[in-house]
C-alpha cells in the first residue's frame, strides 16, 4: 500500500525504480550471467577510481573534449552564418531551405567513411563529422527564429533610419535568442554523437592505438574488459 507521502513525490518512486533495476542487474550479473560479459554495478563503481590511473585515459579525455569544443564552435559559427544568410531573405529561404532539409534528412552515418577518407584518421575527421551533425539544428532554429520576427518591427526600425548592422544587433538577434539557444542544445547533442561515432568507427578501422575516448571504448571491448568498459562509458556521460 502506497502512502500519500510517496504519492506526492514521484521522484522517490523514480529513484526506487532505478535502484530496483540496479539491484536486478547486480543479482543477474552475480548469479545468472557469465561474468565475462556482464559485471555487477558494484564492481563497476569500485573500478571507477582505477579508471583514471589507466595509461592514456587523461590524454583520451583531453582529445575528445578538444574535438567536441572545436566541433561545437565551428557548428555554431557555420550554422549561424548559413542560417542568417538563408533565413533573412524570403527568396533565399524558399530556394535553399528545401535543399538544407533534404541534406538534414539523409542519414549521415552512411557517409562516415567519406569523412575518414577526406580528413584522415586524426581529430580532423571527428571534428568534421561532429560539425556535420551539429550545424543543421543551428541552421534550422536560426531560420525559424528569424522567420518569426514581425515584419512591422523591421519596417519601423528601418523607417527610423536603422542601418543594416543596427537592425541585426537590436531587432534580429534579440528575437532569435530563445530558439538559437534551443538549437545550441540540440547541436551539442549532435556534436557529441557525431564525434563519438566517428571515434568508434575509426577504431574499428583497425587503428586501436589512437588516443581518444571512443577509441578507448572500442579497445576495451577487444580486450574483453567488460567491467572497465562500463565505467569508461559512465565517464563518457
Amino acid at each position: 500500500m502506497m502512502t500519500s507521502h510517496t504519492m506526492q513525490r514521484p521522484w522517490v518512486a523514480r529513484i526506487a525504480v532505478v535502484v530496483l533495476l540496479l539491484a536486478l542487474w547486480e543479482v543477474a550479473a552475480r548469479w545468472w550471467v557469465d561474468p565475462m560479459f556482464v559485471s555487477p554495478p558494484s564492481r563497476v563503481v569500485a573500478s571507477l577510481p582505477t579508471l583514471f590511473d589507466t595509461r592514456g585515459l587523461p590524454a583520451a579525455l583531453r582529445v575528445t573534449f578538444w574535438e567536441l569544443a572545436v566541433a561545437f564552435a565551428l557548428s555554431v559559427a557555420i550554422g549561424l552564418a548559413i542560417g542568417l544568410a538563408v533565413g533573412l531573405q524570403p527568396f533565399a529561404r524558399k530556394s535553399f531551405m528545401p535543399i538544407i532539409l533534404l541534406l538534414y534528412g539523409t542519414p549521415q552515418v552512411t557517409i562516415l567513411p567519406l569523412f575518414v577518407l577526406y580528413f584522415g584518421i586524426g581529430p580532423a575527421s571527428k571534428i568534421a563529422f561532429g560539425v556535420s551533425h551539429g550545424f543543421f539544428p543551428i541552421v534550422m532554429t536560426v531560420v525559424a527564429g528569424v522567420q518569426n520576427i514581425k515584419p512591422i518591427l523591421l519596417t519601423s526600425a528601418r523607417s527610423m533610419g536603422a542601418r543594416r548592422g543596427q537592425i541585426l544587433r537590436y531587432v534580429i538577434f534579440p528575437h532569435m535568442i530563445p530558439s538559437f539557444f534551443a538549437g545550441m542544445r540540440l547541436a551539442m547533442t549532435g556534436v557529441l554523437l557525431g564525434v563519438l561515432l566517428a571515434e568508434l568507427h575509426v577504431i574499428h578501422a583497425e587503428l586501436r592505438s589512437y588516443p581518444a575516448l571512443g577509441a578507448h571504448l572500442g579497445a576495451r571491448r577487444h580486450g574483453h574488459h567488460a567491467k572497465r568498459d562500463c565505467s569508461a562509458r559512465r565517464a563518457a556521460f
Binding site: L193, L197, L200, L217, D229
Partner: peptide, 9 residues
C-alpha cells in the same frame, strides 16, 4: 543519451 555508443557492449 546517444545509445549507439553502447554498440561495443
Amino acid at each position: 543519451v546517444p545509445i549507439i555508443l553502447f554498440l561495443p557492449l
